[in-house]
């Protein structure tokens, strides 16, 4: 464990909590892509299958459970409790265009052709594109509430910090996980445009982020 990974995990947790509390307190999921949240729940489900078979640390186990519970709780808020406020019209990204290539690639490019390893690889590839429906929805509606942009900021920051974690682990431990690193770079690249808007619009105190 290093400071980059720990702060990355904290950012990830903060992002998930920001989103959950935003929906819970505003009793609305307007502007939130349910599809992205479904994809994140799928990412955690396929990645944390070793939750009961491989004990790594208390921290690892606790965080996995917390991420799974919050992911499914957020999905249930969007699709059940506050489904009247779910804007399915704007959440129109075709996720099959993500799932099929990601599933195909996880069968082609993996470390070992075993169910657990392929599902882990699937979760890594899927996570790098899971935010696209949400970013697409923001471009479609042309705006995002500031709290949603803070959620996206921490979510983008977490994987950026993981990139620093992998640089550190390569330097310190000679460790290099090609699949995770390449996917992490792709994932972070998708946030670059958002980061630019976030720093130039939202942090200037303009509150809502409106796209040009």
């Amino acid at each position: 464990m290093n400071i980059f990974r720990l702060s990355g995990d904290v950012c990830h947790l903060v992002a998930i909590i920001i989103l959950f509390l935003k929906i819970w307190r505003s009793k609305s999921c307007a502007g939130i892509s349910g599809k992205s949240q479904l994809l994140f729940a799928l990412v955690f489900t396929t990645r944390y299958l070793d939750l009961f078979t491989a004990f790594i640390s208390i921290y690892n186990t606790v965080m996995k459970v917390v991420f799974l519970v919050l992911a499914y709780a957020t999905v249930s808020l969007i699709y059940f409790r506050f489904r009247k406020s779910y804007d399915s019209e704007s959440d129109s990204f075709r996720v099959e265009f993500l799932l099929v290539p990601v599933a195909g690639l996880s069968f082609l490019e993996n470390y070992s052709f075993t169910p657990l390893e392929i599902l882990w690889t699937f979760s890594i590839y899927l996570e790098s594109v899971a935010i696209l429906p949400q970013l697409f929805m923001i471009t479609k509606t042309g705006e995002a509430e500031s709290i949603t942009t803070h959620y996206l900021f921490f979510l983008g920051l977490y994987r950026t910090l993981y990139l620093a974690n992998w640089v550190w682990r390569y330097h310190e431990e000679g460790f290099f996980d090609q699949i995770a690193v390449v996917s992490g770079v792709v994932q972070t690249i998708f946030y670059c445009d958002f980061f630019y808007l976030y720093f130039t619009r939202v942090l200037r105190g303009s509150g809502k982020m409106t796209l040009p």
């Binding site: 990974r5 690892n60 996995k64 431990e173 000679g174 996980d177 995770a180």
Partner: peptide, 10 residues
């Protein structure tokens, strides 16, 4: 470098 899986990561 040595390739290890990131299974100890979240």
């Amino acid at each position: 470098g040595l390739q290890k899986s990131t299974k100890d990561e979240l």
